[in-house]
Computed example of a mutant assay.
Amino acid sequence: MVRVLADASSFVDDDGDGCGEVLWAAAWIIGEYRVEQKDAHRVIGYLIQPSIKFLPADTIAVFLQSAIKVFGYWAAEVAAEWNDTAHLNAARRMADELSGALEPFTAHADVEVQERAANIVALLAFLCADLAAHTPQPVSTPSPRAELDPDSLLLLQPLFSMPDSRPLALDAQTSVPPLMGIDLDAWIVPPPAPARRVVDNENYDEPSTRKNGSRWFTNL
């Protein structure tokens, strides 16, 4: 999927139309399977490249969402192995690049793109402020790992992941007593009354007006 995003011809072809649906799917897969992305910086660069502004709005929204998903997973990994010398500048640089690339989309004409970009930029502003205020610890100072890394690096990953659901017992419903005074079989909204059959008067012949299979009229 990363190769699809790396191919510039996928965005605009000879007819002026890009492979919007293919790019939508590729970006979605990258965001959902962010664990498989070994080079987060390169992948994020493809997701926020300037060419995405020519894509349909729904595809742009998926690109932005996948970019913050990949960044959030990378930030959580960095926090688990935090080292001020190796990770602080890299985290600041990636957060600044991502925020700067998404800032123009906060004024996008499409509401969904605008909303996603604004939310992501706001989260990154908080993270960037925390990284800027972080004071590197001296190497000679022994400290627990939890006190070394900026806490904001762990903010994003839980927003895009859910814990595994536990299986539900087959008899779980039987342990829940029915509520008193509530008829679960009663209609919440009564069904509409059956429609009455409407007879078309113009094409309807009264039995008294027929004789020998043909219509006859009396003189008035």
Rank of each mutant, 00 (worst) to 15 (best):
P138S: 13
S152W: 05
V121Y: 02
P136I: 13
F126A: 14
Q114W: 08
L102G: 01
S152A: 15
D84K: 06
D164V: 02
A172C: 09
P163W: 04
R166P: 02
A118F: 05
H108M: 01
A101H: 05
Q157C: 10
D84P: 05
P167V: 15
A129Y: 03
L153S: 10
G100A: 12
L123T: 04
S165Q: 05
L124V: 11
D96I: 10
Q137M: 11
L155F: 14
E115C: 03
Q137I: 09
A146C: 10
E103F: 03
V121A: 05
R93C: 00
M162C: 07
L127S: 08
Q137P: 05
W82K: 07
E81K: 12
S152C: 15
D164K: 05
W82N: 15
P144R: 10
L98S: 02
A109R: 15
L88P: 02
F160I: 10
A86V: 08
H134G: 10
Q137L: 12
N83V: 09
R92H: 01
P138A: 09
S99M: 07
P150F: 02
M94Q: 08
Q114P: 03
A90E: 07
A95D: 02
Q157H: 14
Q173N: 08
E115S: 05
P104G: 15
L98W: 03
V111W: 03
L127D: 01
P104R: 07
A172Y: 14
Q137A: 14
W82H: 11
L127R: 04
L154C: 09
V139Q: 12
P136Y: 06
L123C: 03
V139E: 13
A117F: 04
E103P: 00
E112I: 15
H87P: 02
A129H: 14
L98E: 01
V139P: 01
H108N: 09
A90V: 13
A109G: 12
Q114N: 13
P136V: 11
Q137F: 11
F105Q: 00
R93T: 07
Q114V: 05
A118S: 13
D110Y: 11
A122G: 05
S161K: 14
A101E: 03
N83W: 03
A91H: 04
R166I: 07
H87N: 12
Q114Y: 07
D96P: 00
A118G: 07
